Amino acid sequence: KKRTSIEVSVKGALESHFLKCPKPSAQEITNLADSLQLEKEVVRVWFCNRRQKEKR
């Protein structure tokens, strides 16, 4: 499966949402994916990866 490159503006939106809520619910992920026009899975994985980055 190909990697999804996320635009800078979208990254900013994801980042600001992450600061408010690092573990969004499935519903929040769906809403966020719809508003940013990304697949739910891409948003879910982004949050997962971002939480791991926070641990490092």
Rank of each mutant, 00 (worst) to 15 (best):
L14M: 04
C21W: 04
R3F: 09
I6A: 12
A13M: 09
V45D: 15
W46M: 02
A33H: 03
E39N: 13
E39Y: 01
K11F: 07
S9P: 10
E39M: 04
L14T: 02
R3G: 14
E15D: 02
E28M: 08
R3Y: 06
V42T: 11
L36S: 01
E41V: 01
Q52P: 02
K11S: 10
N49A: 08
K20W: 04
T4N: 10
E7Q: 12
F18E: 01
S35K: 15
R50Q: 06
A26R: 10
R50T: 01
E15K: 03
R3Q: 07
G12N: 15
F18H: 00
G12I: 14
K20R: 11
K2I: 04
A13I: 11
K53T: 11
P22L: 02
T30Q: 15
V45I: 15
F18D: 03
L36P: 00
S25M: 03
V10N: 08
T4F: 09
P24T: 02
A33N: 00
K2G: 12
Q37T: 06
K1Y: 06
T4G: 10
K40R: 11
V42G: 05
R56L: 14
V43P: 02
E28T: 06
C48R: 14
T30W: 05
L36C: 03
R44S: 03
V43H: 03
T30I: 12
V43W: 00
K20M: 07
A13Q: 09
A26Y: 10
K53S: 14
S5W: 06
P22I: 03
R50P: 01
S16E: 13
K1W: 08
L19F: 05
K23R: 11
E7F: 06
I29P: 01
A26F: 05
Q52D: 14
L14S: 01
P24R: 01
K40D: 12
H17Q: 08
L14G: 00
E54A: 07
K23A: 13
K11E: 15
Q52F: 07
Q52N: 07
L19D: 07
S16N: 11
P22E: 03
V43A: 03
L32E: 02
L32K: 00
S16V: 06
Q52Y: 06
I6Q: 10
F47V: 02
S9C: 06
K23Y: 11
E28S: 04
V10M: 07
Q27W: 07
N31H: 10
I6E: 10
R3K: 14
P24A: 02
R50F: 01
K23P: 02
V45M: 11
V45A: 14
C21L: 03
V10I: 11
K23W: 10
C48F: 14
C21H: 12
T30N: 09
R50K: 05
N31M: 12
F47P: 15
S5D: 11
